[in-house]
Design a protein around this nucleic acid. Sequence first.
DNA 1: CATCAACCCTGAGAGC
DNA 2: TGCTCTCAGGGTTGAT
Length: 280
Amino acid sequence: MPELPEVETIVRGLRNGDHERKLLVGCTFTDVKLFWERTLASPVPQEFVERIIGQTIVDICRRGKYIIFHLTEEKLLIHLRMSGDLRVETIFDEHGVVRPDGRHDRVVFYFEDDLRLVFVDPRKFGRVWLTKMPEKILGKLGPEPLSPGLTCETFFDLLKTRRRQLKPLLMDQTFLAGLGNIYTDEALHLAKLHPLQKADKLTLEDVCRLLNAIRSVLREGIQKNGASIDWVYKGGSYQNTFRVYQRTEEPCLECGQSIKKIIVGQRGTHFCPGCQPFFS
DNA sequence: CATCAACCCTGAGAGC
DNA sequence: TGCTCTCAGGGTTGAT
């Protein structure tokens, strides 16, 4: 389940072209093969293909969990959702044979110079947009947690007007962009805050601790190339550092108490009752 | 504004 | 071995 660190890792890989020194930046789309139509959020398939062919990739960035391909005429947005991933490869293998399509390949973007970008997505939740107005989608997102512009004070102001529980609020992408289930649980534990705590009950000190914790787990996640769980996303090692996530009934590394799992906002939520007391 | 549930999907793991 | 069942999870949508 790619969250901010996993998406950031993928974007860095795409930008740096660690695939046989072939760079996507500068490549021009020559064709698109579509195996699962619903992967295209907009426009409709025919228009999508007609419009993207001939455009060149200028840059590749991230906003929240969205991957943004800056093209010459418009933007290509990709959201990996639960199980999406991107694969860059040559079209032909070392024997000069066209590589076979993978079972979970949903969209394949072809470029000149024997290169293709494959959107893989076993669970088919991922979505792709081609748009001239990316702000219509990205504009709804909350601030970037790692942006220096987000201070403890501004974060405190954002939280103090909300009466929601911390966990669902932090996972709300319109409130803060990039956190998912894993990093939210990890950040709340590091900040010693209960997932059911109401946002407006936090003191400025609590909020500073929370923001620092969020940044800490995200930075560590990025540094470890993200977390690999569920057979989906590969290559990361942050899963070896989990403090609470998927450690139900195991001892807390801080206090030794047994980690509990509850359901909050339809999401499995892991926390330590000892380190993260609820207060009112 | 907050909460909740359904929906979209498939692979994995459990139970039989 | 192979079947059926349940679960996980991000985000959207609609109801309360």
